[in-house]
Every structure is written in structure tokens, then in C-alpha cells.
Design a protein around this nucleic acid. Structure first.
Lengths: 259, 259
DNA sequence: CGGAAGGTTGAGTCCTCTCAAATGATGTGG
DNA sequence: CCACATCATTTGAGAGGACTCAACCTTCCG
């Protein structure tokens, strides 16, 4: 969606800019690299499969995907949700086989980066390289929060927590309007993400709706009362390291968990 | 325990060698760097605290530690167990504050690496740098497996799984003899790690004991029937990327999940 | 020896699951 | 444009895995 002529609003650059300053030259180079080899993928397709070989660095430009892991007997855990702007398989070359899978949920558009991308970034765009590591660091923090949810939070809290996370993460790449954002997980997928049963997911969602916290229908989430939702979830946005910056000029942090 | 005069068996080098070949020069340099600033820490002390500033790269040389995260209301999730040879806070400089804490369980000995360690490794010991990223990659895989456990496995399975993991990880750094290894988690800590209640941990352990799978007493774990334990846990050791190599000569993989 | 921490046991409860079926969306082809 | 198949959501009733509370026992250590 090139608006006003310049396509500076790629979700990737937008996300990375949230982690720190990015030289205009580096940003241009990144945009170039990302759009060099773009692929369109239909919904519900495995991009990388557990046990098989690894791939190169990918950037999700549009659509939703998931990272998941299956047990021998078929049970499946969704580890995290990948949103536009998310980078994955950043260290693929380090392993000979995947310990998990990655699949699209919706139809998606994918930037496949050249094999020497990281080396080039390291050599010529150190500021960009740093932001890439930051991104990786945030992904790890999200993963830790997911573990914490699964281990400590009740079903209601887990549900509230994931809704907060997905809402804010989309907002940080301009994928929200007002208090609404897309939501491409089915209740069954939510169940696999939150470690509960589809039936119970349904009941938990109805609870949250009944209490006027959210609205969720037709792949669209409306957060009616973010404060109460956040409170219920024991949600602390600090780990997302999201800086609120719209035009790119100011960058007053709103959700940071300052010391 | 310098055996035969040379202390080449630091748990770090041992662990890294499992991920790939390490030049003798790099190894010597690593040993040097790690033993340059060694600190002894008493049991049950926070090394790094959630919300506070980050530290530099650390290597756990001896003893057990944990990575954990606390919710506002006090609930605590132990994210992972750190064993001798484990590296942590590898990307500390990327964040301004910790999203989780790290604490010792036992008295521990800790190698604190110089700030330019990674840069030096990158410049002069690329083989070592690669193994460090491998290690980070394996840590992430362990974290993913933890999420999978918490989300999909039953209490019994989770318990069996963590026992398999801790046993194998210790074995990979020569911290086991026969089918026995140290075990420095109390039942309460196991509960915080597995997302269950201390009382239920106790009952689950008794189940496993009754079935002749394990023995656990006095901070010592004996795995009586690894095969059945592994089967019960739906444990797949592939993600640990452990190569079996004793004297350093051969390296027949035993637990690898070959394609 | 006494206190504290960890481990064990019992009984009752409830959060979450299972099974099953009905209803509502979505999409495809004739 | 309807009929059909498929998938997603919803609802009900019953069962059970894991939790809570509380007491008691054991080990450890100053």
C-alpha cells in the first residue's frame, strides 16, 4: 500500500525503528533487500517443516503465520504468532534441521533474503545489524512470556494476555485502527497456542465478551477496555520494547517499563 | 577436576565441542577468557534481576542456576535451568533492562567475560563465534520445548521430560556417572518449572518411582529406565544437539534425531 | 536441641477436559 | 443460486486431573 508515493512504511522498517534509530541509508538498503525476492504463499502452507532442513532469513511482509511444534502422537503446540514485519529463521544456517515448523495462516507475502544479507549488514550497516539482534532478543522475550503464561496464568489470564500481545504488536506496525485489529486465529488455533481445549477457549472468550472487555468476530478483534484486559492478564508491555512513534518524528515511549 | 594435569575439560569447551569442531587455538583462548575473572557466588542469590540493568556475558562454570520470571502478584515461572557450561546474558547489551531474573540455586562459580569478548571472537576466532551462536540456538530450542511441555504434556509427561533433559544435559558435560547425576531442584522449584503445585509434584514423582523409572533423593537423580522414561515423556533428544564424544576421538551420535 | 525448610499424606473442591450434538459460517460445483 | 460438504463456533452434561488446605513427618544445621 504505497501511500503518497513512497513506500517507507514497510512493516519491517517500522518495527525495527521502534527498537532504535536507523540510518536512512541502512533503511533504504533493507527495503531493497527485502523486496528483492518476494513470494506469495497461500494460506495454511508449511514454509519450514520440523525435522527437515533449514532455510534462509525470511521476513513476513503481509499476512499471519505461526511457529509450531508437534509431538510424536500428534499434539501440537503453537509457539508464537508471526505478524507482518516479523523476521524468522534468522539463524537457520546454525542448525542442520528444524526443531519446529512454520506455516502460514492466511495468504502471505514473504521477503526471502539473500544468504549474504547478514554479512553485508554486519559489514556496511552496523546500526541495522544491531536492530536485527534487538528484534531477535524481543522474540526471545516473547517466547519467555509465553512460557510464563502457560505455566502460571489461568485460562482467562492467558487468553487476555495473548489478546493484549497481538493487539499491541499489530499496533506497533500500524495494523490497527482505533481499538480494532485483524485476528486470524481460529478458536482451535487459539487452543493450541494457549494450551487448552477448543471448547474451553470458546467459553473463556464468551466470558471476556460478557464482561465487556473485547469483541471478537469475523477475524476482527475489538479491544473495548484495554486497561481492564491488561490488568486481568497481568500484562506488562515492557518486554515488547514498543516505542510509540507515528510520523517517525517523535518517539515518546508509552508502554515502556522504565526502572 | 584437572585430570592428568591439563584442565581441558572445562564444561564450556566440552559443551561447545559438541556443536562442532573447535580449533585448539580458539579453545585455549576461550579457556583463558573464561578464567580471567571468576567469581564465587553463594546459593540462592540473584545474579541479574528483572527490571534492572543487564550485565555482561557470563559462563556458569560450576553449580546450578535458574532463569525465572515473576508476575506482579508474586507467581513465579522458572524458565530454564542453567547447568555448568551454560552461557547466559549473551545479548545483554541489546536491552536496557532485564525481562527476567537469574539466580543461583547452589553455590556457583561464574566466569565473567570481558565486554569485548564477542567482538574479539568474531574477529579472531570465527569458529568459536559460530559455536557460541549454536549454543544460543540450542538454548532457544530448549525454551521452545519447555513451552511445548507446558502447553501440551500432562503433569507426568512434563516431569519425565524435564528429568530426561537435565540428565542428558549433564551427561553432555560429564556431570554424570552411570545412570546418576546431581539434581539440585527442590520439589517446590520443580513445581515452578513445570507449572504445577508442590503437592502434585510430590505425587507425580512418587508415581515415577513406584513404576521403577527413577530414583530421586538427596539431590541425586538415578535414571533406572531411560527408555521408558523417554517414551513416557515423548522426549526427542534431537533439539539438544548433543554429540556423544568422550575422549574427544570418536563422536558417534547416539541421541541424534537423524533425518 | 529446637527451628526451619523440605517432603509426604489425606480429603475435598474446582478448573478444565471429554464426549456429543446442534448451530452457524464458508465455499464449491452443478 | 441453491445444495451440499466442510469447517468453525456454540451449548450441555459429566468426569477427572490438578489444586487447596492442613497436618504431620523428616532432614538439616546452628
Amino acid at each position: 500500500m504505497p501511500k503518497g508515493g513512497q513506500n517507507v512504511t514497510s512493516p519491517v522498517t517500522q518495527k525495527l525503528r521502534g527498537f532504535g534509530s536507523l540510518d536512512a541509508r541502512s533503511e533504504a538498503w533493507l527495503l531493497e533487500a527485502v523486496q528483492c525476492d518476494v513470494r506469495s504463499v497461500p494460506p495454511r502452507v508449511d514454509l519450514l517443516r520440523q525435522g527437515e532442513g533449514t532455510g534462509s532469513l525470511h521476513v513476513l511482509l503481509e499476512g499471519w503465520s505461526i511457529r509450531y511444534k508437534t509431538l510424536e502422537d500428534g499434539r501440537r503446540q503453537i509457539l508464537s504468532v508471526l505478524l507482518p514485519g516479523d523476521i524468522f529463521d534468522i539463524n537457520g544456517h546454525l542448525a542442520e534441521s528444524m526443531d519446529h515448523s512454520i506455516a502460514t495462516l492466511t495468504s502471505a507475502s514473504l521477503g526471502v533474503l539473500a544468504d549474504d544479507f547478514l554479512d553485508m549488514a554486519r559489514a556496511r550497516h552496523p546500526d541495522l545489524e544491531k536492530l536485527l539482534w534487538c528484534d531477535m532478543h524481543v522474540s526471545a522475550a516473547i517466547q519467555r512470556d509465553r512460557s510464563t503464561s502457560l505455566g502460571q496464568r489461568t485460562a482467562r489470564e492467558r487468553m487476555a494476555h495473548i489478546l493484549c500481545e497481538l493487539y499491541l504488536r499489530q499496533r506497533s506496525v500500524n495494523r490497527s485502527s482505533g481499538h480494532r485489529c485483524a485476528f486470524h486465529l481460529t478458536q482451535t488455533e487459539l487452543a493450541e497456542l494457549l494450551g487448552m481445549t477448543p471448547v474451553y477457549v470458546n467459553r473463556t472468550l464468551q466470558d471476556l465478551r460478557r464482561e465487556g472487555l473485547i469483541q471478537l468476530e469475523q477475524k476482527c478483534l475489538t479491544v473495548l477496555d484495554f486497561d481492564r484486559l491488561q490488568e486481568l492478564a497481568l500484562f506488562d508491555a515492557g518486554y515488547l520494547r514498543i516505542c510509540e512513534s507515528d510520523g517517525g518524528a517523535d518517539s515518546h515511549r508509552e508502554n515502556a517499563h522504565a526502572v
